[in-house]
Design a binder for these strands. Structure first.
Lengths: 242, 242
DNA sequence: CGCCACTTGTTAAAATCGCATCAAAACGAT
DNA sequence: ATCGTTTTGATGCGATTTTAACAAGTGGCG
């Protein structure tokens, strides 16, 4: 398969797991191609995607006759992500201030937070913010800016400045690529900027990745692995002393 | 409610629980009424049903995972709000930069935006942001800060500073109270601060309120009525020249 | 009965979706 | 570089969806 095409399919898959429903126009904008190309991609991958009334939905949803119910089970790596996060909660304590990165893994961590913990949460992605608003004792601080559909996140100088005024106990970072020699990378540069700033403000930095990310490399580098206090995959925690 | 109508709603609900998805034509056949009537039934019961691409689906499927949809569906003044907003869209033009206030009325306005309009949208409420992300040609700027559950909005100095750097063509404001002598008021002071700043940056300021707000008074004053270029209720537009 | 508000059906128009077609661009191999 | 193949983008058109407007029907009530 054409590598460019393969990348589009992957990106579409990512975007879909975030939004669960994508208007074709929106998808075309995210992927930076024409609507027609999106249509062709979708129909060429009928095993993954399906059309429904001008929108794209995961094929698994349609099989159930229910195009909406975004089963989080539809996310192929859901089990792995949940497991990653179950290891991660031990780093969170009552009254902590926590930074939550964007991505598809982090929302699972939010769901696992005990309701009785009083936390201050910092985030910059819409899907993460939404989850956090459901936690009764969480004080939520959102970093605003320009919206990026691919990651449902925001970027802007005001967010970076806000970070400068925050004390963070633990920062949970995600990465689209993890390479032992080239470190942690993500797809977009604006994300990398926020990640770096958040890490510099945090006492502890934890990287959350399911193993499907290992060995991959993305354009925007944001940290080498030694800078993390721990790297958590579904197999467990790897701590870096010091 | 008309007994015949009530029976149709029940029958539709039954049919939906069996099929999970119903084509409008199919539903019309099952109920023995015209398509148009089915459409009216569905949109009059947005708390139970929803449209999607010519089909009817249970609203719960769409609302799942989305707390704001719920509150919106439960909104008793939904019809009035929709009507308010239908009057309001005439103030929006292609390529405009629009400020969207928080509240339950504004999301209806977002839904009414033509998809082909290229807009820059400024907002500071989670429910509004969410709606805006579904618009394909909208560039979204979010003002971040501390989250306030009551209005699903954020407040903070960084948001106010961001506003200072923005040129706004039209600002749509909402109010929890409107009094001809004491002006427009809202429940929280942090909201009032953002509203005032947004109004000072906008070429045109439009107040959107359903008539249930008229005569009410809330603690946080943010503008007298003469400062608005128009006040829109479900009954129509009242313009203030100059 | 006649008036009224409300509901329903019909029709038309507008917007959108889905698809086929064709031209341009990118790519690969010689 | 040149040719042929593949991929992509643009355009147009029919079908479908959605909305709006108007006409007809229904039932309550004096």
């Amino acid at each position: 398969m054409n590598p460019r095409k393969g990348h589009r399919i992957a990106a579409l898959s990512d975007a879909l797991s975030q939004h669960r429903i994508l208007h074709i126009k929106t998808a075309a904008q995210i992927l930076g191609v024409s609507e027609m190309t999106v249509r062709r991609d979708v129909s060429a991958n009928a095993d993954q995607f399906a059309f429904f009334g001008g929108h794209i939905v995961p094929a698994s949803d349609v099989e159930n006759d229910n195009p909406y119910e975004l089963s989080r089970a539809a996310d192929s790596h859901a089990a792995a992500k949940r497991q990653v996060c179950s290891h991660a909660i031990e780093y969170i304590h009552d009254d902590d201030t926590i930074f939550f990165d964007c991505g598809t893994t982090v929302p699972y961590l939010v769901d696992l937070l005990p309701d009785h913990y009083h936390l201050t949460a910092i985030c910059y992605a819409l899907n993460v913010a939404e989850r956090l608003t459901r936690k009764p004792n969480v004080r939520l601080v959102m970093l605003g800016g320009l919206y990026h559909p691919a990651s449902a996140s925001f970027s802007g100088s005001s967010g970076l400045e806000t970070l400068d005024a925050l004390g963070i106990n633990v920062a949970f970072l995600s990465a689209a690529g993890v390479d032992s020699r080239r470190g942690a990378t993500c797809a977009h540069f604006h994300e990398a900027e926020i990640k770096r700033k958040a890490m510099s403000r945090a006492q502890k930095n934890i990287l959350l990745v399911d193993s499907s990310k290992i060995g991959k490399l993305k354009p925007a580098f944001f940290s080498d692995l030694q800078s993390f206090d721990a790297v958590i995959t579904e197999d467990g925690i790897k701590e870096f002393p010091g």
